[in-house]
Design a protein around this nucleic acid. Structure first.
Lengths: 341, 341
DNA sequence: CTGAAAGCGCTAACAG
DNA sequence: CTGTTAGCGCTTTCAG
């Protein structure tokens, strides 16, 4: 027995009014039954829910947003969709957002702080919040935006803005100890983009360990993060005479590895390379990359949780403002003992 | 001289009414001036635009959507965000959508046709259209959904649904010719997910070339596409006694390469491997993968163009229903002549 | 616990 | 060319 009118008698989408009519109640009661199930008579609620199912009611999120102010959409801003680092982030945010019934708006800021600010400002009314995974915004601009719209950052620490930080700097210590224990003394840090917050944090950490071991690390760069910078970075590196390097991130490290291969520089025999992040590809490049494994997906999940808990008025606003996620060193083939030749 | 009231005198978002009041015109005129600039007196339009800028007016997309039906959002559905194949797609769609002023909703269907259909159905009112990159839906379900909401598919051909097809099957011929010219006679096709449309198309193409050369290709699999399937696929492959294989996609191929390395099977000396797609990683895995380079990003861009032209009522609906994008073989280190031992 | 009524901000006829 | 008038579908007071 086919049901003829799934979409309402005029073949137009079912609204709460249709349900109200079908149940002989007011539209407002339907709205309540569907949203605040507690504040409605269980019996009528049952009827309403049944009718809604029967009619295949699908709420109109636009209308809901218009009157309630909540849109059910969260933006995730990345600086470059093609950077595999974000795969993990997106996977994490995706999972949590879907579980919580939110839609994920993916925004590529193309590494531009201006674009980032403009887009966020324009979209602030159509978003319940945003996750900034790699903001290029100055601290002040970021803090100001955070007043317009709930924000959580990943790998970016700004007063007053909740953040999920991957503690790669701590890992830099591990990485450096690893290299030093292998006999390396002349070590370089290959720098990523200048205005990148994690880049600066990593460099500071590198200087720390260096000092502790009475060494001085050479800084090479900055380079835009991306495999494309590999050749320039590798060539610069070779001029420094170091025997090992820690690279801002895996993407750049892989680019360097490729260039070194081209130039017949053997890794790790002539040069040890450590990356950061452990992205897709770090384990199957050649040689496999020793790197700081970051809980990237978890970072995405945590960021979403923090954001959602902020949106939820019922929870105390005492939630931690910053969560720090640990990394660990994963040793693969790109690092080895210094040659005693 | 700081401007105190950017957000309206009550510090609430500026609406067209504020602009209307400021200019002494009706709200509808403001709406027209901003949307159909042609249908309004140039002079008043100027004034309105100036006021809008002055007041930093940002349209409320929810309200607009509610009354106009257009939401300004396009969904891009992928079967698994972490599959690098989609990076390119997302990059392409991202570019075009942003240029056209649309927001991109990223949806991960987790390889489930049911989830895909459900999500699309639920969100159809909040979307202007959707791009299906790797639908797991049966043809009928897909065709039905296409009546609810404007759809464009990538790598999936269904009657009545516009599509962007990457012509990997044609490339399979190139790949096979390449292997055959290197002396290979026993060749396998390593199959991807059973319900994947491109997988079937590639297998058919493989059988075609085989027949033309009076050969028979062995089919191995199916395997879920992903590096995780590498070990199983590689082991199965080694049992067949083939000297070369064409693999459903690069992700799987890279997984296979890793496993072969573990098992000390030399590539390409003992086994030549060809992938499909040329994803991120195909050029730096070990050995670098010979593969069919697909214009992935372009596919994303084209899909968006097709979708947008469908949405635009002014263009004739005579737009091509299907665009075919060519691929080419990129020979790298994973294929070589058969050993004449 | 439920109904009536008033919008949310914008667009889209329809008159003028 | 422009103003008036209705809503779009839903939430949210405010009464009852």
């Amino acid at each position: 027995m086919p049901r003829a009118h799934q979409f309402g008698s005029a073949d137009r989408p079912v609204t709460i009014n249709d349900i109200a009519a079908a149940c002989g109640v007011a539209a407002s009661t339907v709205s309540r039954a569907l949203n605040n199930p507690g504040r409605v008579n269980p019996a009528t609620r049952e009827r309403i829910e049944a009718a809604a199912r029967e009619l295949r009611y699908v709420p109109n999120s636009q209308a809901r947003a218009l009157s309630s102010g909540r849109t059910g959409a969260i933006a995730v801003l990345v600086s470059d969709v093609t950077n595999p680092f974000y795969f993990g982030v997106l996977r994490g945010t995706q999972q949590q957002l879907k579980a919580a019934g939110y839609a994920q708006l993916l925004i590529d800021t193309e590494d531009s702080g201006e674009l980032e600010a403009e887009l966020l400002h324009k979209m602030r009314r159509s978003l319940d919040g945003a996750i900034l995974a790699a903001s290029r915004l100055p601290d002040k601009a970021l803090a100001k935006l955070a007043e317009e719209i709930p924000l959580v950052t990943i790998n970016r620490n700004v007063r007053g803005v909740p953040s999920t930080i991957i503690d790669t700097p701590a890992g830099i210590h591990q990485a450096a100890e690893h290299l030093i224990s292998l006999g390396h003394r002349r070590i370089a840090y290959v720098s990523g983009p200048e205005r990148s917050w994690p880049n600066e944090a990593r460099w500071r950490a590198a200087q720390d360990v260096a000092a502790r071991h009475r060494l001085t690390f050479t800084r090479v760069g900055p380079f835009p993060s991306g495999r494309g910078s590999g050749p320039a970075a590798a060539d610069a590196l070779l001029n420094t005479g170091v025997t090992a390097c820690i690279v801002f991130n895996d993407l750049l490290a892989i680019g360097i590895l490729q260039r070194l291969r081209e130039r017949r520089v053997r890794v790790p025999e002539e040069l040890s390379v450590v990356g950061c992040d452990d992205i897709f590809g770090a384990d199957f490049c050649h040689p496999p990359l020793t790197t700081l494994t970051a809980p990237i997906e978890q970072a995405g999940r945590v960021a979403v949780s923090m954001l959602l808990s902020r949106l939820d008025r019922t929870t105390a606003p005492t939630a931690r403002q910053s969560v720090m996620l640990p990394v660990h060193l994963t040793v693969r083939g790109s690092t080895g003992p210094i040659l005693s030749s």
